[in-house]
Amino acid sequence: MFQKSTMSPRENGNEPETIIAPSVKVEGDFVSEGNVVIEGMVEGSLRTSRDLRVGERARISADVGAANAVVAGEIRGNIVISERLELEPTAKIYGDVKTKVFIVSSGASVNGRISMDETEERSVKSSRVEKGKHSEPVLEKEEALAHEEKPKVINTFFTR
């Protein structure tokens, strides 16, 4: 009776609860329970149980964990995303990536190991996704052979 029936954008999860603007640097273990937008610098570790957006000018030197993430900036550290990771053309990743769904725009670069299965470790070696080229993930030869009995479609999409 006393509660408002409509929820605010923030309560709906449409509005970020944490914004690290370009004028701020965070050092240490940053843990959040809401949506996080990073436009500044982060050093240490960064974890959220919800969505993460890393802006184009953001520089992160930290291990990163989130439910979903859209990355346009630079991350130096390992990334664990429980659902969906999207790399925009300006994204630069220096570290290992673990996610369920991986979307890479042309121009984005990943320098590390990519794992996309929770139970069976299936890795895709990807160096640089060249600008303008439509790239496909390449399974490491030995690992691909080891998993040949049950061929599986990797839940990966590449967009221009």
């Binding site: 609860e17 944490t18 914004i19 370009p22």
Partner: peptide, 22 residues
Amino acid sequence: PRTVGLKNVFQRRADKVPSVIP
């Protein structure tokens, strides 16, 4: 971020956005 004078005029809009940290 707090800027005054000409710096305020030429500063990018993104640079004026506040950080919000719970």
